[in-house]
């Protein structure tokens, strides 16, 4: 837990009111983002993202599976977040499970769309190889290594970077003579298909402290929040998902205002992230 004295709290709140936060940023400014790709050699794609002192690793593993009966034309994606006790002592034992679950669900909501898979940021139908028979199952595992606030935004950024680092092997499927027969699958180890990540949204969390709201809050700032709204916005400025956290109620007009700010901030953040990913990919080669 963050232990702040009364004076420190006053300083923090006063700074936010005057649009000058304790690390010198303005209210709507992100910390600088650092991306490294290909950090986990045994995964299909992986990335490490640092946002200030927050550090997360995301890895993508692809396995061949069978589409579900309800959605034979869609692949499956699942997201698991783990908060390592190295990030904070309170995540030791069973302590991090609740937060891990909250983050996993929020990410699934923002990236995978509704139950039917409609409106998903990751194109689920591109994961199908033979309708109703063979598809890719993507397992997205994320690990919080070091935590200094704004975990959700960093996790979404790491997943985006890991996806753009992912190459799915080219697969040749030979269908059996009868429809009951399992198709034969031949996985190529030379040809890889790139993943299109241009539709993957960025998540922007706006944390309300006092009357104002800030982006990319540090853990000190998060300890002073009344409520927070996480908005996922894609490159076209469309909103893909929304989560509100924290106890205090918000006026509906404030929420709309927050969403429009998130949309505005996301443009800068997405372009920063994209150029970082491109730089990481270039140095990875």
């Amino acid at each position: 837990m963050v232990g702040l004295s009364e004076g420190e709290k006053q300083f923090l709140r006063g700074g936010i009111e005057q649009d000058l936060r304790s690390d010198g940023r303005t209210r709507h400014q992100f910390r600088s983002v650092y991306v490294e790709t290909g950090v986990i050699p045994q995964a299909n794609g992986s990335a490490r993202v640092r946002l200030g002192a927050t550090e997360v690793i995301a890895s993508i593993k692809a396995e061949l599976g069978k589409p579900s009966l309800l959605h034979p034309d869609k692949g499956k994606v699942s997201i698991f977040v783990d908060c390592s006790p190295t990030a904070a002592a309170i995540y030791g034992g069973k302590g991090g499970e609740e937060l891990s679950m909250e983050l996993s669900v929020a990410l699934e909501r923002c990236l995978l769309g509704g139950k039917s898979g409609a409106g998903a940021a990751i194109d689920l139908s591109s994961l199908v190889l033979v309708e109703g028979k063979v598809c890719w199952d993507l397992y997205i595992d994320a690990l919080v290594v070091s935590s200094d606030g704004n975990l959700l935004d960093s996790l979404a950024a790491a997943i985006k970077a890991a996806l753009s680092n992912t190459g799915l092997p080219k697969v040749n499927v030979v269908l059996g003579a009868s429809p009951e027969e399992q198709p034969e699958v031949d996985v190529s180890d030379e040809e890889f298909l790139q993943f299109d990540t241009s539709t993957v949204p960025a998540i922007i969390t706006l944390t309300k402290v006092g009357k104002h709201y800030i982006v990319d809050a540090t853990s000190e700032e998060e300890s002073q929040m009344n409520s927070a709204v996480s908005v996922s916005v894609n490159r076209n400025g469309q909103i893909c998902g929304l989560t509100k956290r924290g106890g205090a109620g918000l006026d509906p007009s404030v929420i709309l205002d927050m969403v429009s700010v998130a949309k505005h901030v996301s443009q800068q953040f997405t372009s920063d992230l994209d150029s970082e990913i491109a730089a990481a990919e270039a140095s990875d080669e």
Binding site: I40, Q42, A43, S46, S84, E97, L143
Partner: peptide
């Protein structure tokens, strides 16, 4: 406390803590 990341091994497994 010792913990293993889900992606640490070749075959992806999800271990309980």
């Amino acid at each position: 406390e010792y913990s293993m990341a889900n992606f640490s091994t070749g075959d992806r497994t999800r271990r309980p803590k």
